[in-house]
Amino acid sequence: MKKTFLNRDLIQRLGFSMISLVALFTVVPIVGVMIYIILQGAPAISWEFLTAMPRDGMRAGGIWPAIVGTFYLTVGTAVFSVPLGIAAAIYLSEYASENWLTRTIRIAIISLAGIPSVVYGLFGLGLFVLFLQFGTSILAASLTLSIMTLPVIISASEEALRSVPQAFRTVSISLGGTRWQTIRRIVLPQALPGIITGVILGLERAAGETAPILFTGAAFFLPRLPGSPLDATMALPYHLFVISTQVPEMPFQIQYGTALVLIIFVLGMNLVATVIRSRARAKRQW
């Protein structure tokens, strides 16, 4: 009897140590890699690096056009996906009843969320670039990214809307509010922090993606900034891809610097989203 207890104890200890080790092995590389990129990339980052055009076949100079391009693409994505995504979420949370149509919408959202990013690229090429003749352009790439971002924005916004207490809606209606007035004046403002968080998380994904813009809007190298939404553009993720695979004798420092800027761009958005979320939670009145 005593022996089995000892055994059980030993097994538990072994088990726990093993699991802890597994967790450690998962987390340590993440931290290690982040620190490594920061250490390697930080020396590359200077005012010139951030604000100058690339020179010498991108082996020198800065990454300004890639930064601007990613900014344009992110804003372009937001222009299309934010209104559409929020409206769709409002529909699901405030108007839709449980029927086959709603279920179909939910299945469609799940499907959209799972489609590989390169397939979005193909679709954008087929529809926006070729069929609608937008060409390889910021417009086509933004539209492609927006559709990819849509399920993230819809799901997060719907959750935020649903978390607003039902009683607010009942009271507003009982005071003579219409459904839209109730949404506009009570539900949306209360759900806003959650919606913004979801939107940023969606756009963060869009900002870091390469595959969907490969054939819809990304340019290998441009000597000047894009002048209109119908121009192609450089972008940070694609630029990192290019300088780490397509350009021989690329200085490591520029590569790490570019990677670091991209990470800061993306994780910075993530940080903003997290701050908004926790601030709003603290301030919430219900």
């Binding site: 987390v27 931290v31 982040m34 870091g208 390469t210 780490s244 991209l262 993306v266 993530n270």
Partner: peptide, 15 residues
């Protein structure tokens, strides 16, 4: 930290 990994663009991992 785990979410951080999820947020890293895939091109960075490739790099």
């Amino acid at each position: 930290l785990v979410e951080l990994l999820g947020g890293l663009p895939s091109v960075v991992l490739g790099f």
